[in-house]
Every structure is written in structure tokens, then in C-alpha cells.
Write a protein that binds this DNA or RNA. Structure first.
Lengths: 112, 112
DNA sequence: GGGTGGTGTAAGAATTTCCTGACACCCCCC
DNA sequence: GGGGGGTGTCAGGAAATTCTTACACCACCC
């Protein structure tokens, strides 16, 4: 659903989210269908807290979405699924996005 | 010149290289044409050692190329220029790339 | 009760990345 | 000599990430 990011900051976040072997594996695992956290932890052989952390980053980047499903008895399972996305990048697009970067800019001008 | 990365490790490197405001700005600055290091440092207002570091990462990711030009008198200037590139990514491509990741794999199988 | 399987977080160690300051060396020109 | 402009690297600190251990709580079933 998501297309190529628009602002420089979003680009940075997206790139950062994808710049991790663990997260790539998570996405790969989720691309086969939704899965819940503990299952995923087993499959990828990583402990849950770590997995949580990565899932949060992926979620922040809108690459995955989580849904806590509570059974009628009260027990709950949290399913995650990958968000379909497409990102097309080239030098020009990057240069353009860079202009919208906030934070310490190259020079004085800073919109408050 | 470069197309979408092939191996998972390359993907990670590329994403990491692009996941930095400073590096995006560098690319943007270089997209206007080649420039030498000190000039770039002035334009982006960062000290050279730092700039060097980022340039190295960009060069490692093959996003820029550097060329040390030595004048007949012996003085030298190092020009950098951005490499045109295109990267098209989607969930499927990521999932595919993830399979080629080296290092701690999900399970036992490991090619020596 | 004790065991199994879930979710979620807090705390702290280990590691990596980022950034600064100080060097050494080169060339010109006043 | 003393500037001004280059390239390049090294040591060390600051800051952000990553990862582990341990805990809290929930519902089930034997």
C-alpha cells in the first residue's frame, strides 16, 4: 500500500528500518502470512524482547501491523502481518527528499 | 548504473548507507556535480573527519566515487561524484533477498 | 499446586555508530 | 617565517542501537 516515501525524514526512517538482517528476516517470515509473536520467535530463533523491539521499529515504519486478538476466554495472541509496499528510489529522488530534512540543516535558514 | 541490490547483505548495506540525514545531504550536494572534500565540508557545515567517514560509507555502498586529482605542481584535490542508481523494492523482493542473508541464520543449516 | 503457552516491559550490559579535536604532511604566496 | 588552502588519519568521548536476563501478568490443563 505504501508508496515511495515523501519527506527526507521518512526516507531515513524507512531505510533504517530495512537496514537490519533481523528485520529483513521478520518481513520475509511475515510475507508468508500473518503470525503471532511467540511463533515468530521460535521460527527465527530469537528471544521475544528482541523480537518485540524489531517489530516496533517495523511497525513505526509502517512495514508491518500488529493486532492483538483476544479470545472469548480472555487469553490473547498478537498477530503481525506485513504491509505490502513499494519503494522506488534513485539519485534524483534522494536529492529531492534531502531538501525536506529537518534538524540541523546545512546553513542558517530554518523554518521554525 | 547500479540497479536494485541482489543479496540480502548488500541490501542491508545500501539501506544503512541511505539511513542518515548527513549522507542524504551529501548525495544531494553531489547530485549537482562533482565537488572536492573541503568544499563539501564548507557547504554542509561539517568537519572533514566526519565527512570523510560518511563518504567512505557511501563509497562502500557504491553510491559515490572518489578521485584524487593531483596537479602538476604536486598539490592534490579529491573530487567526489554521485553514482546514478535505481533501487526498486517491495515486500516480495525483500523476502527474497532475506533468504540470501549470511551470518546467524534462523536455523541449523549453514553452508560452511 | 505445577507445568505449558501466551503478552508485555524494565533494567542493564555489550556493541556499534557517530562526532570532535589534534595531528602530520603537501603546495603556494606575501 | 607565517599565513592560507589541500589531503589524510588517529585517539577518545558521546550517543544511539542492539541484545539478554529477569520479571509481571493472563488462561489453560493435569
Amino acid at each position: 500500500m505504501s508508496g515511495t516515501p515523501r519527506t527526507g525524514d521518512e526516507l531515513v526512517s524507512l531505510m533504517a528500518a530495512l537496514a537490519s538482517p533481523h528485520r529483513l528476516r521478520i518481513l520475509a517470515a511475515l510475507s508468508d502470512g500473518r503470525t503471532y509473536v511467540s511463533e515468530l520467535a521460535r521460527r527465527l530463533q530469537m528471544n521475544r524482547p528482541l523480537l518485540y523491539m524489531h517489530l516496533q521499529k517495523l511497525e513505526a515504519a509502517e512495514l508491518v501491523t500488529g493486532e492483538l486478538v483476544t479470545a472469548p476466554d480472555g487469553s490473547s495472541v498478537k498477530y503481525f502481518q506485513a504491509t505490502p509496499f513499494t519503494v522506488a528510489l534513485d539519485l534524483e529522488a534522494v536529492a529531492l527528499a534531502a531538501q525536506t530534512l529537518t534538524g540541523t540543516g546545512p546553513a542558517g535558514e530554518q523554518e521554525k
